[in-house]
């Protein structure tokens, strides 16, 4: 069995195919482009879509940052970084500002993104209408005809039942006044960061074989109603480590009696705030 693999694992033909799909996705913001997703040596659900996107766009000069749940050091982020270190030998960074490509699962960094940076999202379920209509053959038509009434009805039903919209993460957005898109399971706290962002945002769903994108400076609006506007999560306290009151906070249980403290989910941002920049 051959033991050598191409730069960044995928063969060049597959990379070209993925890059063509990315270009199409950028040309039609928020539209899910079907692509010939390849099988990767990491399991589906572990970020195979994101890994394929990164593999297709990465070059030897890139600096890659990988986060999971906002952290550079969770097991899955470590594993994906190890994969690209091994197959592409590229530089890894934890500095959001330094990175040219940031692959992420479930978060967008707190540090504002810049022009020229590419965010790569790992997407489990690319179809925002999936839980309203599980059949792809139907949802394709709904997107085609911009038939989004059922999504608004679902949000309305939330308000009728709970007094507010009950989606806390993977909160649907409308991109460039046209397609309704899943922002991937980021907390809705991160949704506004997509709106007119100077960075390129690429979304890859490996198992479902879909790629979609938000080009730079594109309108990304979280769905809501005039009288029930989109609202963000709020915390009463601040980060127990850096004291930040403007970042997404994770809850840490510190003892058996259930004492809770809150700390930043974005570990790099937190370290920076404490005057202790990431290595």
């Amino acid at each position: 069995m051959p033991l050598s693999y191409n730069f960044a694992y995928l063969d060049e033909q597959s990379k070209k195919m993925i890059r063509r799909s990315i270009l199409k996705a950028i040309a039609i913001p928020g539209f899910q482009v079907p692509f010939g997703g390849r099988e990767m040596p990491l399991p589906y659900g572990w970020g195979t879509g994101g890994i394929q996107l990164t593999a297709a766009i990465i070059g030897p000069d890139d600096r890659l940052k990988v986060i999971d749940q906002g952290s550079d050091d969770t097991v899955n982020a470590i594993s994906i970084k190890a994969f690209f270190k091994k197959t592409a030998g590229i530089a890894i960074t934890e500095e959001t500002k330094e990175a040219t490509i940031i692959q992420t699962r479930h978060r967008i960094p707190e540090t504002p993104l810049q022009k020229g940076q590419i965010m790569v999202f790992q997407v489990p379920i690319p179809e925002p209408l999936q839980f309203i209509e599980p059949k792809k053959s139907q949802t394709v038509k709904m997107h085609g005809f911009e038939e989004y009434g059922s999504m608004h009805v679902k949000l309305y039903e939330d308000i009728a039942k709970f007094g507010r919209i009950a989606t806390a993460f993977d909160y649907p957005v409308q991109v460039h006044q046209r397609y309704i898109m899943s922002p991937s399971p980021i907390p809705k706290y991160d949704n506004p960061k997509l709106h007119r962002s100077p960075a390129v945002h690429l979304f890859g769903a490996g198992r479902e074989k879909r790629i979609y994108a938000v080009p730079p400076y594109t309108d990304v609006v979280s769905l809501d109603f005039e009288d029930y506007p989109f609202e963000l999560e709020k915390w009463d306290g601040a980060c127990a480590v850096c004291g930040s009151t403007d970042s997404f906070l994770d809850e840490i249980i510190t003892d058996d009696t259930g004492t809770r403290v809150f700390i930043c989910s974005d570990t790099e941002y937190c370290k920076k705030n404490t005057g202790n920049p990431a290595p």
Binding site: N76, H106, F169, W235, D250, E251
Partner: peptide, 12 residues
Amino acid sequence: LPHYVDFQSELV
């Protein structure tokens, strides 16, 4: 895999 962030959103 960790789902801390999404679960946190649910808790909030």
